Amino acid sequence: MRFLTLFHLSPFLDTAISYVTAFVLGTAIGAERQYRQRTAGLRTNALVAIGAAAFVDLGQRLGGDVESIRVISYVVSGIGFLGAGVIMKEGMNVRGLNTAATLWCSAAVGAIAGSDMVAEAVLLTGVVLFANTALRPLVDAINRIPFAGGTVEATYSVTITVAVEEAGPLGDLLVEHLENAQLPVADLATQERGEEQVALVATLVGTNVAHSELDTLVEHLSRVHGIDHATWQVSTHD
């Protein structure tokens, strides 16, 4: 049997240590994700770590350190497809980026464990857990800080609701006012508001806009030009 010729106790124990290390550390990372009810929880992170460790250990056993490096590069790229599966886009919001990044880190922990660097794998696990737990209060504190319009990258739009027959000239008027205010328009869209009215939505090119400028503009459109409904909104993004 080929098994008898390939089996050696010392390499087998080395592989067992790599697998157990990856399992324990991947479970620790996954437990935090499971506690927070994330898409990729305990079992997923544990399996990602074990799989990465198995591939790297196999490459090292069969081809040495050079081959294990080649396997690691494939693990790094391959885990990206798995991470993409937990990322979801809901309107202007993107969810799952942190979970995908955690899966990537679990794969790194497994690859390090598969390379027999147990202490380094434990260290990385501690750093990942610190990032996902200890930094959370800091993130919440930052999110509660009011932001000024010129300090974030965002998409601004100005919307006016007008009668259907006035859509053409008032649309030109809206674009003219925005251009005169040095707020170039990227797109002007029309949305139906019943049979007699439409909403004209002007999306701006610039990302740094003072909110006071837009407040003044919509007030001018309402007061001077008699537009009943004029407003603006901002959607922040990474």
Rank of each mutant, 00 (worst) to 15 (best):
T15A: 13
Q60D: 14
A16R: 02
L42Y: 11
G26K: 10
I160L: 12
T21M: 07
G78A: 08
A148H: 12
V94L: 00
A16I: 09
V152G: 01
N98F: 09
S157N: 05
A84K: 07
G83E: 11
R36G: 00
R61H: 14
A113Q: 09
D228A: 14
Q60K: 12
E195K: 07
G206K: 00
L82K: 03
E165V: 05
P169T: 15
T155C: 02
G110Q: 12
T44R: 11
G126M: 08
G64H: 08
A186T: 06
V75T: 05
M92V: 12
V75P: 08
Y19V: 15
G78C: 11
A31Y: 15
V86H: 00
D172N: 13
N98I: 00
G96K: 06
M117T: 01
R144P: 01
P11C: 08
Q197T: 03
N132I: 01
L6G: 09
S10A: 14
A199P: 01
G194F: 08
V152Y: 00
L204E: 03
D65L: 08
E176Y: 07
A22E: 06
D116N: 13
F81L: 04
L138G: 03
M92P: 00
S18M: 08
G91P: 02
T151Q: 14
R70S: 09
A181Y: 04
G110L: 06
I72H: 03
L42A: 13
T102W: 10
V234L: 12
I79Y: 02
A199K: 04
A181H: 09
T39Y: 01
L129D: 04
R43H: 14
E196W: 02
R38A: 07
A154R: 04
A119N: 00
T5Y: 08
L170A: 04
G96E: 04
R193Q: 14
Y35I: 02
L25W: 10
A31L: 15
A119M: 12
E179D: 13
S10R: 10
I50A: 13
L214T: 02
G126F: 09
I79G: 03
V201Q: 07
S68W: 04
A148F: 12
G168Y: 13
E176Q: 15
E213G: 03
A111I: 06
R33V: 05
S68R: 05
E192P: 02
G51D: 10
V122Q: 06
T102H: 01
I145C: 05
G63E: 09
P11F: 07
G83C: 01
G51I: 05
S106D: 08
A40H: 06
A22T: 10
A46Q: 14
I112C: 02
V109E: 13
L97T: 05
T99L: 10
I17A: 14
I160K: 09
H220T: 15
S18A: 15
T21W: 06
I79A: 04
L200F: 07
V128L: 05
L183K: 02
A111R: 08
H211V: 00
S157T: 05
L188N: 05
L62H: 11
H225W: 14
I17N: 03
I145S: 04
A230C: 04
Q233W: 02
L58C: 02
E176W: 04
C105P: 00
H8P: 01
F12V: 01
S222M: 09
P137N: 15
